[in-house]
Amino acid sequence: MTVFLLRRLLQAVGVVLAMTLLVFLGVFAVGDPVEILISPEADQLERERAIRELGLDLPLWRQYLVFLGNALQGDLGRSFVFNEPALQLIYQRMPATLELALGATFLALIIGLPLGLFAGLRPNAWGSRTIMAGSILGFSLPTFWVGLMLIMVFAVQLGWLPSTGRGETVTILGMRWSFLTWDGLLHMAMPMLSLSLSRIGLVIRLTRSGVRENMVMDYVKFARAKGLSPNRIVFVHVFRNILIPVVTVMGLELGGTIAFSVVTESVFAWPGMGKLIIDSINVLDRPVIVAYLMLIVLMFIVINLLVDLSYSVLDPRVRLESRE
């Protein structure tokens, strides 16, 4: 187990290093931040002073080494634009994105699992066909369009839900959270629903195919031959087996949900990390881009690790292998 974790950690370091190098080269290839950041009216002296302050006078490989040296001391650089530490900028916006992504995943599970179970157990029922058709809509409709429609119906026409911002927040551990206040929840409702729609579709389809696959297995027939009640067979025997693929996919999706909640955040003016990264890319604010991507890479690695660990809880066959 320790060896397993250690190996994962080393891999993570390697991935982060490779990623930072790519971002440095990438930003360099896209354009010169100097052109965007420094006003065209500035004279030669001012220009050179600004360039030196930002550390952009050094050759690229020196810039990279300086960055690495600072990164090892926990300093990922200051934003060119805000002149604040890049990490601090991201941390301020992270809770907003996290609560949105986690909320969307939670919603996808509590809606998707029961619907998928129903559709799997009664594949020919009228309700199941409706659910399956709905699930196709769920992940075919573009997120931004769904967001706009939601705003049109619930904010503009009905006036039930606020369409922008986070609403009232509560500060815990120095971070601001919306989901703990009623007003915050109302603000979260629409972005969360729009973000979770495609995931609901995904969970429904995964659950349904899992149920269909498992219900015809011999172990189900044997469980019936033991005289167990249908509820016990579905909710204990079959459910445990279905959870394995659902947890894997939703775990991997969670990383994607966090990293790419950009669209939803833009539509609902949700002040999260996605909005920050888009703005930073526009002005080539390299420290923020690098720091953000490092964080996302780490998050993916941690989530994958958690998925692997949850596997061993759900599937005893994996547990034995990791012990040996």
Binding site: D218, Y219, F222, A223, A225, H237, R240, N241, P316
Partner: peptide, 14 residues
């Protein structure tokens, strides 16, 4: 009842 394939009749996760 006892089934044919013992590898399949017991639930693998319980």
């Amino acid at each position: 009842m006892i089934f044919q394939d013992p590898m399949m009749t017991l639930n693998p996760v319980l």
